[in-house]
Amino acid sequence: MIARVIESASPRALALLAVVTAALLIAPYLVDSYVLSVLIIVLYFAYVGQAWNLMLGFAGQLSLGHALFVSLGAYTSAALFIKFGVPPVIGIFAAIAMAVVAGCLIGYLGFRFSIRGVYFALLTIAFAEFTGIIVDHISWLGASSGLFLPVKNQQSNDLLNLRGSPTMFYYVILALTGFAFALCSWLLNSKLGLYWQAIREDQEAAEASGVPLFRYKMIAVAISSGLTGIGGVWYAFYYNNLFPETMFKTSQSVEIILGSVVGGVGTLFGPILGAFVLTPLGEILTAATDGMHLDGVKSFFWGFCVAAIVLFRPQGLWPWIYDVLGLAPKKEGKR
């Protein structure tokens, strides 16, 4: 299947992909610690954006509550590590399980009760916010004062316990992003992916053509929430602190989806491109507005840029760049 993806791409696109991959692989040896920290965040958003995109962009189900899956993954693995000394390499399975169970619960209720579109999105928001308030009151999880991972001065990188230098975290999230990309491109070119796209385009017509809607929507939610939960594990061990006040919030979900939407929903490169545009944009705005000493200037321009993209590039940046760079194979057919 991967061979097929490569076959169908143009030489130019493959060359670009190879250059970008190579650059990302050697980046930690070329850039300073600040740029590395920005790259780490870029990759994190590329990863979770890809996971979210699978649900909306591929299968047509809009979630505005993906913060829930990040948070569940983060809290589960962190709590297991802090309270029972379970290393994240094992805790990750519990984290995935928690996220998938939550995703399936929401999906089950939403799809069984035929809650669609905006209403389904509101259901995902409600579950995320609801869970956040509950966690806010569980003192075992640190409640509102937060959950902290022990930070020691680490001499060496300990991959099993996810304790180490930013470079280690960089390679971990790079590997995850690569994995998610490969997985998504494989899924998209499989029976599953074709069924998802059929559901996204017209669910009644898909059903009449033999697509079992409920099962395939549930698979999409399960994979998407599980992948997002893995992102949460990485998040917990990279940042070392978790606050329900920010983790479960809709604003966190918005950050997750932003890259994909800006890059291009439903495309494989959209989430990655979006993250590479938005995170540095935020950094540039921070630097540019630093001297003004005025709260809100940065976020204003941020909102302005997003609104501009929605208004003027509603298909996202990727389809546009795709044409500009001439990445299309000779024959018609995108992606």
Binding site: Q197, E201, E204, A205, G266, G333
Partner: peptide
Amino acid sequence: FQIVRPFNELT
């Protein structure tokens, strides 16, 4: 379907 319902983004 009486009113055609193709999957528009697919070939």
